[in-house]
């Protein structure tokens, strides 16, 4: 395996790649040209094509981000306009519609997950005006003028966010369903640490400075609003600490 890696590394260096492609390949640990072939398009959609693993593409990515119109005018319709991943969206929504359902059912942004719909699992976590919140307990109607960032908006110019890379590297997920919420939560957590926000396990709550270095215990407490039923918690903490402290976890892999 190691030999292959070296060989591929070499191949990779010989390739004439665009900057975009290079950064993507770097992050993904993908070196072979055959993968590159799929990367002709550097858009998110192009990226995802690569690993849809041949489920008919039109079924997987049909109608992406094209807002669908409601089938009938609602009795309690509300017009709302907000920014989602820097793009302004105007929607007419049922007053009962949550931000979560607006993204998933109307904007085909299904990265934000519905795990409980009652604020008890964190799978629907995304950023509104830079803060992590639960989209299942946010009415779409109340989002007028807000800036929403979902998991689909974290990668910039096809470059994965460092947290996304760290989750892949540290295997911070298994089934992947809680993952967008975990990552959005982790990204916000980095800002909270910078701000010097406290948690219940913070040692000295009266004297707290900015740019906190969070212990593992601190990370665990602050990430406890994101349930992972697969039990990837130690790997999630490792991923966050890699981004937060630059600390790489030694997993003691057996030599294979």
């Amino acid at each position: 395996m190691k030999e292959n890696k070296d060989k591929n590394q070499q191949e990779y260096q010989e390739l004439q790649l665009s900057a975009d492609e290079k950064s993507i390949l770097d992050q993904l640990g993908i070196f072979g040209k055959s993968r590159r072939r799929f990367l002709g398009q550097s858009s998110a959609a192009g990226l995802s094509l690569m690993a849809t693993q041949f489920i008919p593409i039109d079924k997987v990515f049909g109608q992406e981000t094209v807002p669908s119109t409601p089938p009938v005018p609602f009795k309690n319709a509300v017009d709302v306009s907000f920014s989602i991943n820097t793009k302004t969206q105007q929607l007419t929504v049922d007053s009962r519609m949550t931000l979560l359902d607006a993204l998933r059912e109307r904007l085909q942004l299904t990265g934000t997950k519905k795990g409980c719909d009652h604020g008890q699992c964190g799978a629907c976590t995304l950023l509104v005006d830079g803060k992590r919140v639960l989209s299942c307990l946010t009415l779409a109607a109340s989002c007028e003028g807000k800036e929403v960032t979902s998991i689909e908006g974290l990668a910039e110019n096809s470059e994965l966010h460092p947290m996304q890379k760290a989750f892949i590297k540290n295997d911070g997920f298994q089934c992947g369903y809680c993952t967008p919420g975990q990552i959005c939560s982790s990204v916000a957590l980095m800002d909270e640490a910078k701000n010097g926000d406290a948690s219940y396990v913070t040692e000295d709550i009266m004297n707290i400075s900015e740019n906190l270095t969070l212990s593992d215990e601190e990370v665990r407490e602050r990430m406890s609003g994101n349930i992972c039923r697969c039990g990837a918690y130690p790997n999630i903490v490792a991923a966050i600490q890699e981004v937060h402290q630059g600390r790489e976890t030694d997993y003691n892999w057996q030599e294979s």
């Binding site: 964190g122 919140v133 939560s185 957590l189 219940y200 709550i205 009266m206 707290i208 406890s224």
Partner: peptide, 29 residues
């Protein structure tokens, strides 16, 4: 509220109590 200097310095019990509740996301809302 939990993180406001006035609250932390004067009423740390309140900061702790707030931070003991729910989750970071919910406390943001």
């Amino acid at each position: 509220t939990a993180n406001h200097p006035l609250v932390r310095k004067n009423f740390p019990m309140l900061s702790l109590a707030i931070l003991a509740g729910a989750s970071g996301q919910i406390r943001n809302m």
